Computed example of a mutant assay.
Amino acid sequence: MRPAELERLSVGEAADRYVELVRARTLTGALAVSTAEVYARDVATLVELAGEATVLDDLSGEDVDAILLAFARRPDGRRSGAQGQQSATSQARFRRSISALFKHAALAGWVQLNPMAAATVTARQRGGLRAERRALTREQAQGLIGAARTLAGEPGQGRRDQRTELRDALIVLLLSTLGPRVSELVRANVEDFYTNDGVRYWRVFGKGGRTRDLPLPHDVALALDAYLDRERPSSPGAHDKALLLSWRGRRLARGDVQAVIERVQRRVDPTQRRTVTPHGLRHTTATHLLADAVDMDAVRRVLGHSDLSTLGRYRDELPGELEVAMRTHPLLRPPRKP
């Protein structure tokens, strides 16, 4: 039986009251305006997902689970044309926002019980919805690499000083074949690439001040030299050492890399195309090197991990790999002839 003081507000009414209180806190300096607007945006999303006319007190833990999962599957509108789900950071922020609303609702007498206490969806489950972070299949990865190769071989379009085809191809090839962290990629300088005994190397400055020297596959080395010789803009100033520059001569930011991947993806055959992030390409590198029986310690060194056990997080399942393993089982192969 509900207490007499319980107000059976709709989700829309409760949201309006709560957002008004949140914005009032900015007047006293208790809350930053930008933070208040984040709360307001998340609460508006809650109204959309739960239904404006739904009574707030009628929402159960199962309803909250459904709302959290629905939010996780929503396209990330911060990226143009993005089809992937929300980032783990956005999901955690949304959960905090609606948790704060329900906590206030319980104190204000809008709900008898806080339904967040009965929510069962874990961060692992929400994160698992992000398909764009999983490794690409061999066909998908080869489609993306093929598009990058084609892009590198095409004559540039538009003004010479505004072309980015070779740069975009190089970015995709480096991410797909060497799997660097996106921070390592955008921090790279021209001087970090050198030649030793006819082999091109990239000295990667990684986490914890550690460095690793990675030999570039032949095709990647050719793309690097083509970009440096024909397209990379020369600009005086602090960014002159940066490998990856915009046509205005500024070092690329982390967010720019995702836009490059999506631009190259549009050239991939639709049957091979799948949304992927820079970190998803890091998974792709690890997965296919390990699937091809490359030594685990070598893969660890390519990715820049200090501990071999970390590789387990980067090794994703590939369709059909168990069937292939059973067809070529080492104990069932015919004995070698003397």
Rank of each mutant, 00 (worst) to 15 (best):
G143M: 11
V299P: 04
R336W: 04
H288M: 09
D225F: 03
E5D: 07
K241T: 12
G255P: 07
A106L: 07
R263D: 04
A141E: 09
A188M: 01
P270L: 04
P319W: 00
L252R: 08
L216M: 06
A253N: 12
L59G: 06
P217W: 12
E262G: 10
R230S: 03
R8F: 00
F94I: 00
T285C: 15
T45I: 13
E191W: 11
H239E: 14
A117I: 12
A105H: 06
R73V: 00
L113G: 07
R130E: 11
S309G: 13
H104M: 04
R23G: 10
E231K: 00
E37C: 00
L214Q: 06
G29I: 01
E231W: 06
G312E: 00
V299D: 11
Q91C: 01
R266D: 05
R124K: 14
A15P: 04
A259H: 14
A100F: 03
T45Q: 10
L6T: 08
R273E: 12
N189M: 05
G51D: 09
S306K: 06
T89Y: 09
A131C: 10
L311N: 01
M116F: 01
A92I: 05
R266F: 01
A50N: 09
R25L: 07
R254S: 04
V22Q: 13
D57W: 03
D256Y: 08
K103L: 01
E317L: 08
S234G: 12
D192H: 14
P75S: 03
R8G: 03
D225H: 11
Q112E: 15
V38F: 04
E62N: 13
R251Q: 14
S90C: 08
D63C: 02
S34C: 02
L173V: 01
G249N: 02
T211H: 15
A148G: 08
P217M: 11
V47A: 12
D292C: 02
V121F: 01
L31I: 06
Y39I: 03
V190T: 14
L318H: 12
R300N: 08
A135M: 00
R96G: 02
R230E: 13
V276H: 07
